[in-house]
Design a protein around this nucleic acid. Structure first.
Lengths: 218, 218
DNA sequence: GATGTAAATGAGTGATTACTCACTTTACAA
DNA sequence: TTGTAAAGTGAGTAATCACTCATTTACATC
């Protein structure tokens, strides 16, 4: 539990202590890292866009890499926020009697997250392949945890007789793929289209439930 | 149809006319672009790894960018290979009476492609966000075409009464997400695990069919 | 061997890069 | 007003970069 605390502390500190110039640096870096990538963005360009001297960046961040990490690490912590509650099954049972309801709520929740953090999330996804320490952090702290929690949830709903007798990892993968596919197309590939979010979520959840849900009479 | 011909011509030319040194350059570039990214890989590093002088790279490729494009453009052409047959419905009807059979065959076919082209495909995915012309090419020549063909296929199987009355784009997105999720986890996230490919494909196709397939008696 | 051409080399070039540091400006306390 | 610390600046530094081009090497032909 201690690494989660550290990550959250970092997140909170980060948001409270930025000077105006530092804030401009971070905003400029976010925009340019997302558009051109970390490696192809120079500190000179970031400084120009932020309206500060290049040396100012190094007043606040020891290295260019530290600037990147200061941006993406908090975003990673935010990613797992809905999954860090220890007794998540108890909490959810009070609210979501059915796997279907849980799925809907989670999609809506992650959509809200994406709306607010789209650019930073984009940087994270783009940079992970090129930074081994980011990849490890993501793998150990994010992907594994989400997978474990999600698997536990699937087992829970299986015990309640709501999911057919397929291996939980396969169900997780299937559910997560469908959700991720929806979010990807909705926000990255075709963001300009007229989306009826409610309907698309409804359809996706329906297809997932038809795919893995235990049907009465079947 | 003419752009497909040009892409294929490029692909064939590319594979036939490489000198030994050029081959070494391409191999070194593929390895390093995949690992560090295009922007963070220098021509000096590529030359060293290939065991050639740096100037030799520029004997064969006008710019560093040309080297990258010479690698990923043929891979893009290969991506759409199964989808470029004009009367694909007729061909498929002779072989795949059911959507389920088509899905299986396509997953297996794309798996074979991934096995042989994993690294180049990885470069492509990694670099698309940073190269507008790659993104455009991918969007116009690959994603749109695959989507159109796949949609046509879904409509076809809907007419045969095999798929429920959901919008074809949603069915495509759902099917493709599940397939992509399987391939992603299988080959990128957890490649070291013991995978029973046949069983995983069977399960995935089953879940998809349960999700969108028209069931007798339902 | 002489001649011509293609392929390869590696020193060099001008530009760019992440970062340093001497100096200036700003903010604040006494 | 004075003094000090913090914040900010931008010229400069050593290293790196994509690429050039004069030279060398390899090979074929006569």
């Amino acid at each position: 539990m201690s690494e989660e605390k550290d990550v959250f502390k970092q997140l909170l500190d980060q948001e409270e202590s930025l000077t105006e110039k530092q804030q401009k640096i971070v905003e400029a870096a976010i925009e340019m890292f997302a558009e051109k990538g970390y490696a192809a963005t120079s500190t000179s360009q970031i400084a120009k866009k932020a309206g500060v001297a290049e040396g100012t960046i190094f007043r606040h961040y020891k290295t260019k890499k530290d600037l990147l990490l200061s941006i993406v690490s908090p975003a990673m912590a935010k990613l797992i926020a809905p999954f860090v509650i220890r007794d998540i099954n108890k909490v959810l049972d009070a609210k979501y009697e059915r796997y279907e309801d849980f799925l809907k709520a989670m999609i809506i929740n992650r959509q809200e997250f994406l709306k607010d953090n789209m650019t930073v999330f984009k940087i994270l996804i783009q940079e992970i392949p090129f930074h081994p320490e980011l990849k490890e952090q993501f793998k150990e702290h994010i992907a594994q945890k989400i997978f474990d929690k999600f698997t536990g949830l699937v087992e829970y709903y299986k015990e309640k007789g709501q999911i057919v007798d397929l291996p939980a990892p396969a169900v997780v993968r299937f559910s997560a793929s469908s959700i991720f596919g929806l979010l990807l197309v909705r926000y990255i590939f075709l963001p300009e289209e007229n989306w009826n979010d409610e309907k698309e979520i409804e359809m996706t959840v329906q297809m997932i439930m038809n795919g893995v849900g235990q049907q009465d009479g079947r």
